[in-house]
């Protein structure tokens, strides 16, 4: 009989150990806990069209390499690192095969069209859409590292030290790049006069 979710340990490390012993339910629970973040990370790198399959790939790779997790970082951070590598590989492959490495926002579908209707007034809603489109455009203009850190912080909702661990940089670097990114975005959005 498979254990109910309540019977599963809260600690990812213990779940990981059970997953290593071949307990599929334990790995399923790890997927459940981390899939949202992994998807959000993939979304930032490869765009909406590929985010789902990149996230799926990430978990399959993680499962096959479960024994290489050494517990030095958090399990979630380890997963994010695999997700980033998976996405970077995909982007490289796109480039190698001559496909255009499109912006993660420019994947043919209008992300704003699916935006939840937060503003009741159509005019207000249109303005909201315009503001988001402008933000997306300004993000695209950021230097690569700044954009990456900004998106991991605000859209993948990662902590500063997790970002540092995932990218293999110092926390101070993350803070500096994030500050520069926000400052530049505020300036380009006209919030700094």
């Amino acid at each position: 009989m498979t254990p109910a979710r309540d019977d599963l340990p809260q600690d990812d490390g213990l779940l990981w150990r059970r997953a290593c012993d071949g307990e599929e339910t334990a790995f399923g629970e790890l997927v459940r806990r981390h899939q949202r973040r992994v998807w959000l990370v993939c979304r930032q790198y490869v765009g909406g069209d590929e985010a789902d399959s990149a996230a799926q790939d990430t978990f399959l790779k993680a499962f096959r390499r479960l024994d290489s997790f050494d517990g030095r970082a958090q399990f979630g951070t380890w997963l994010v690192r695999i997700a980033i590598n998976t996405c970077v590989d995909r982007l490289r492959r796109r480039k190698r095969w001559g496909q255009r490495v499109e912006s993660s926002e420019n994947d043919g579908d209008d992300p704003l069209a699916r935006m939840p209707d937060g503003a009741a007034d159509p005019e207000e809603r249109a303005m909201q859409r315009q503001a988001i489109a402008r933000l997306v455009t300004c993000e695209e203009g950021l230097p690569g590292r700044q954009r990456e850190i900004f998106r991991l912080r605000f859209y993948a909702e990662m902590e500063l030290d997790e970002i540092a661990d995932s990218l293999g940089v110092h926390v101070g670097t993350v803070k500096t790049q994030l500050h520069r990114a926000v400052h530049r975005l505020r300036r380009e959005l006209g919030e700094i006069r």
Binding site: R43, G48, P111, R114, M115, P116, L135, V136, Y155, L189
Partner: peptide
């Protein structure tokens, strides 16, 4: 503005 953008991403999930 950032949280509105995040909400638009959540709609894609």
């Amino acid at each position: 503005l950032v949280s509105e953008r995040r909400a638009s991403l959540e709609a894609e999930m």
